[in-house]
Amino acid sequence: MKNILIVSGHPEFHHSVANATILDEVATALPEAEIRRLDWLYPDGKFNIAAEQESLLKADVIVWQFPFSWYGLPGLMKKWLDEVFVHGFAHGSTAKLAGKKLILSFTTGASQALYTADGFFGHTIEAYLIPFETTARLCNLEMLAPVYTCGISYADRDAGKITRKKALAREHASRLVDLLKTIRE
């Protein structure tokens, strides 16, 4: 059985609808997976680097769960990456993460239609993932296909829209769980 580590980079998880639903669903389906909610563990933003690196070392599969923020990682998760994935641990001649699998699992507020060459942003989601692919390559991680869901805005909070967001998030979680189960076997 593969050890699964899920790092949640939502900066304010208590305000989340989609990412909270995704993690709740994954925790129920895969109770053996370790889930690290960075904003809960480190409300002051001061990471325990040794603990974070130890969790990464134990993992065979690493999932980064986050809301797509300014076309990349939210600030809290970017800070975590900067401080935890240091030379000598994550990359370099004494790197320790080689061979682990990395899965990006994220949500976007904007709809899928906006993430096309002809859409508002002028780029596909995949075009925004090049820095992640480069990070994975530098760290000798095997980056698998991402699991993402577009159109889950944090702004609209009426009951009907929250119900729809939760349904999309449960579907997202189902796809992520299916992928993790396939890898685990």
Rank of each mutant, 00 (worst) to 15 (best):
94 T>A: 14
15 H>V: 13
168 L>W: 02
33 A>Q: 08
138 L>Y: 07
26 V>T: 03
32 E>G: 13
125 I>Y: 00
74 P>N: 14
23 L>G: 01
182 T>D: 12
67 P>Y: 06
2 K>E: 09
81 L>N: 12
40 W>T: 13
77 M>R: 04
171 E>T: 13
62 I>R: 01
182 T>E: 15
49 I>V: 14
160 G>Y: 07
81 L>I: 15
19 N>Q: 11
7 V>I: 15
104 L>Q: 05
2 K>H: 11
14 H>C: 10
141 L>S: 07
164 R>F: 11
109 G>S: 10
107 T>C: 04
87 H>M: 11
79 K>Y: 08
24 D>H: 10
176 L>G: 01
12 E>Y: 14
122 G>P: 02
100 K>Y: 08
148 Y>S: 08
50 A>T: 12
118 D>T: 14
135 T>S: 13
17 V>A: 05
146 P>E: 07
114 L>C: 07
15 H>L: 15
164 R>W: 12
147 V>T: 12
45 G>W: 06
178 D>A: 15
74 P>L: 05
28 T>I: 13
72 G>M: 02
133 E>V: 00
125 I>N: 00
84 V>S: 06
58 K>Q: 15
111 S>L: 09
171 E>W: 06
158 D>F: 10
17 V>N: 02
7 V>Q: 01
63 V>R: 00
48 N>C: 12
61 V>I: 15
171 E>C: 08
29 A>P: 02
38 L>K: 03
129 L>D: 00
65 Q>A: 03
21 T>Y: 01
46 K>N: 14
100 K>D: 05
5 L>D: 04
58 K>S: 11
15 H>P: 03
99 G>P: 09
76 L>C: 02
112 Q>V: 05
155 A>L: 11
49 I>D: 09
95 A>R: 07
148 Y>K: 05
63 V>E: 04
1 M>C: 10
35 I>M: 03
101 K>E: 10
48 N>P: 03
82 D>F: 05
43 P>F: 09
77 M>A: 08
131 P>T: 02
42 Y>E: 04
26 V>R: 01
124 T>F: 01
135 T>M: 13
95 A>Y: 01
29 A>R: 03
167 A>Y: 12
70 W>N: 08
167 A>D: 14
88 G>Q: 04
160 G>I: 07
20 A>W: 03
18 A>P: 04
116 T>E: 02
163 T>V: 13
100 K>E: 05
175 R>P: 00
93 S>V: 14
112 Q>R: 13
64 W>D: 00
133 E>Y: 07
94 T>K: 11
21 T>V: 06
37 R>M: 11
68 F>M: 09
124 T>P: 04
109 G>P: 09
159 A>C: 11
89 F>M: 02
62 I>L: 08
66 F>Q: 01
21 T>G: 01
101 K>P: 01
56 L>C: 10
45 G>Y: 07
173 A>R: 04
47 F>N: 03
39 D>G: 05
47 F>A: 07
158 D>H: 15
89 F>H: 04
125 I>D: 00
129 L>Y: 02
123 H>R: 14
79 K>D: 15
103 I>H: 02
116 T>Y: 00
150 C>Y: 04
147 V>K: 12
79 K>W: 01
80 W>M: 10
105 S>Y: 01
165 K>V: 07
